[in-house]
């Protein structure tokens, strides 16, 4: 069963369509990534799903129930962590966690708060007011709050922003383990592509309020049209340049390295290598860069921008 089903969700603000008729679903126990540039509509979507914002139209089903008709019951079963909003800044860490533990009616509140705080290395700051914490510490307190009610669905909006790399890794480890052990569904947004690639079972790309078909990271990467090839030569570099010119491949020469971008690896690189062998051109090393999610993100953004300006001007950018 799907934990979250979003159908034809639309949200407009004066002059802006923040979320434009999007539909997607998130399976139970899945870690689902929402990727996109700033203003793509990720946070608006999360805010609607967490009940802070009302959509213009569309339907949201969470745990098989209509979200807007069962908001109180559903909110008891999910939680949210974001790096953008801290808990009450005038309260201490412990006071904040005590209040939220009571809101979620947690049994054994003290033990639960202490266990999670130890886990996220924040227990030494129990008596400190939130406004005196560093941004990384604030994020950790919010993460503890988000796990207090053993949520079946967790919204993590840029939840590792401001964390030191080692702490971020501990947080990711814990979340992965929590997801595996409890079957909790996680909706995850992040600017760190590597993190999204590492954490998420499926990823959807948002741009200009629209959403792409979700897919696994490797499936998305297959969509990439270009790859960078670097050939290292100790001799015969001129012959190699000649072959590339004959094949209409534009390249860049950096000392004894030829670097060029190709589309469709299978169709281009193998015939090219055959020509090198036939003409007796030997290279010392070849480096074919593996596309990352970051490459996908950049290409996808460019493509969507291009599509947008084409729509506006009727001229296709090249």
């Amino acid at each position: 069963m799907d934990t979250v089903v979003v159908k034809n969700l639309k949200k407009t603000f004066p002059g802006v369509t923040a979320v434009n008729n999007i539909s997607f679903s998130v399976k139970k126990g899945e870690i689902f990534g929402l990727l996109g540039v700033n203003g793509a509509g990720k946070s608006t979507t999360i805010n609607i799903l967490t009940g802070l914002l009302r959509p213009d139209s569309g339907k949201i089903t969470i745990f098989g129930k209509d979200f807007f008709k069962n908001e109180e019951e559903i909110k008891n079963r999910f939680n949210v962590a974001t790096a953008y909003y801290s808990l009450s800044t005038n309260l201490t860490v412990r006071q904040n966690l005590e209040v939220y533990a009571r809101i979620y009616n947690i049994k054994n509140r003290k033990k639960k708060i202490e266990e999670l705080s130890e886990r996220f290395m924040i227990s030494h700051r129990f008596k400190t007011k939130v406004h005196s914490l560093s941004s990384g510490e604030r994020t950790r307190v919010v993460l503890v709050k988000a796990l207090l009610n053993d949520p079946e669905l967790l919204f993590l909006d840029e939840c590792t922003v401001g964390l030191d790399p080692d702490v971020a890794e501990i947080v990711r480890d814990y979340l992965r383990r929590y997801n595996k052990e409890t079957g909790c569904t996680i909706i995850f947004t992040s600017h760190y592509m590597q993190e999204v690639e590492e954490m998420c079972d499926r990823i959807a790309f948002m741009y200009d309020g629209k959403i792409s078909n979700p897919g696994k990271a490797e499936e998305l990467l297959k969509e990439l049209e270009t790859q960078t090839v670097r050939l290292h030569f100790s001799r015969q570099i001129n012959k190699a340049q000649q072959i590339l010119r004959e094949n209409n491949i534009s390249f860049e020469k950096k000392k004894n390295i030829l670097e060029f971008t190709i589309q469709n690896r299978e169709k281009i690189i193998y015939p090219l290598l055959e020509q090198f062998v036939k003409k007796g051109v030997a290279f010392d090393d070849m480096h074919l860069s593996k596309p990352t999610l970051e490459d996908y993100f950049i290409q996808r953004s460019k493509k969507d921008q291009n599509l947008n300006s084409t729509k506006e001007t009727g001229i296709e950018k090249r």
């Binding site: 967490t50 009940g51 953008y84 800044t89 809101i103």
Partner: peptide, 17 residues
């Protein structure tokens, strides 16, 4: 106070009515 401390976000995403 909830607005000043920006805790409104967490308060209204919780089951609090």
């Amino acid at each position: 106070e909830s607005f000043w401390s920006r805790s409104v976000y967490h308060l209204f995403s919780s089951p609090v009515q």
